[in-house]
């Protein structure tokens, strides 16, 4: 495995994903690659885990509602020191703990997701709980753009707005694809920002691979004086970082072979020190 970076270097995170995807001969690589920079900025600069404890009662909550991107989160948990390298080399081996979709039994993962449209509501509940208890905890729910086809997202959006959950932020990974094709082909979403704004959210749209922009937008949204919940619409590229995977939805399903693994690694890890 690559030496750990304390800085959640996206290149190292992508290499970790490639290594585990190859070790486990698993799919959903594109889903993980589109959220690498988002997770890097969140874990590096924003999420608070007192005592570096993934279960600290006063932690911020980060809910990966789009469980299909879980390999990106595993890569971050490795950097946090919560997952050991053996878990990655043994990915998908019989009896291993790390599953192909998010599972709350893994410390650091807040929900069991993969069936879509669940984590958003759980996150709204966590934010409501923090508000009721009067803590300053923040809750983030990361959803896919395909995922917001699901009705409960919009039920939860109504609730978050009605109850002025200003401690709640939804981050939409707008990579433009869902399982069977582009979001444009499958079920048009229109302006995601306008949709969340119409539900009473304070929303920003940005390039989801620009770490400085992500950091600035999160900071800006939290600094707002409004009582609105927040929405960050991150325009991303599915498969980002490996040219032959980018915007190619087959990498929702395709497994790496030795050749594609080597090619991908050369692009991603060639830049790793």
């Amino acid at each position: 495995m690559t030496p750990l970076s304390k800085h959640f270097d996206p290149k190292i995170l992508r290499k970790t994903v490639l290594d585990m995807a190859y070790a486990g001969s698993t799919v959903h690589i594109g889903c993980a690659f589109s959220i690498i920079e988002l997770l890097a900025v969140l874990y590096r600069n924003h999420l608070r885990y007192p005592g570096n404890d993934p279960l600290a009662v006063d932690r911020d909550y980060f809910v990966l509602s789009k469980g299909h991107g879980v390999m990106a989160q595993y890569a971050c948990l490795r950097e946090m020191g919560w997952l050991k390298d053996e878990a990655f080399s043994a990915y998908f081996a019989d009896g291993s703990d790390l599953k192909g979709l998010s599972d709350s039994r893994v410390s650091g993962l807040e929900v069991t997701s993969g069936s879509l449209g669940h984590g958003f509501s759980v996150g709204v509940g966590m934010a409501m709980g923090a508000k009721l208890r009067g803590t300053d905890q923040k809750t983030y729910a990361l959803v896919g753009d395909g995922e917001i086809n699901e009705g409960p997202i919009w039920e939860g959006a109504l609730f978050a707005s009605h109850h002025q959950l200003k401690n709640f932020m939804v981050i939409v990974d707008e990579n433009g694809f869902q399982a069977m094709g582009s979001t444009e082909e499958v079920l048009k979403l229109g302006s995601i920002q306008a949709k969340f704004e119409s539900f009473g959210f304070e929303a920003l749209t940005l390039n989801g691979h620009d770490e400085a922009a992500i950091d600035g937008a999160i900071t800006q949204l939290w600094a707002s004086n409004s009582k609105s919940p927040k929405a960050l619409i991150a325009q991303t590229v599915k498969g980002k970082g490996v040219p032959f995977m980018e915007n190619n939805n087959i990498w929702h399903y395709t497994r790496l072979d030795s050749e594609t693994y080597a090619q991908a690694l050369a692009v991603v890890a060639g830049c790793v020190q």
């Binding site: 929900v111 509501s121 759980v122 509940g125 934010a127 905890q137 009705g151 409960p152 939860g156």
Partner: peptide, 20 residues
């Protein structure tokens, strides 16, 4: 929680996770 049962149950999970 409004006429929104799916969200209500998800929220209940989040509330339970945060000590309620």
């Amino acid at each position: 929680a409004g006429i929104a049962e799916q969200n209500m149950v998800g929220m209940a999970a989040g509330l339970a996770r945060s000590g309620f």
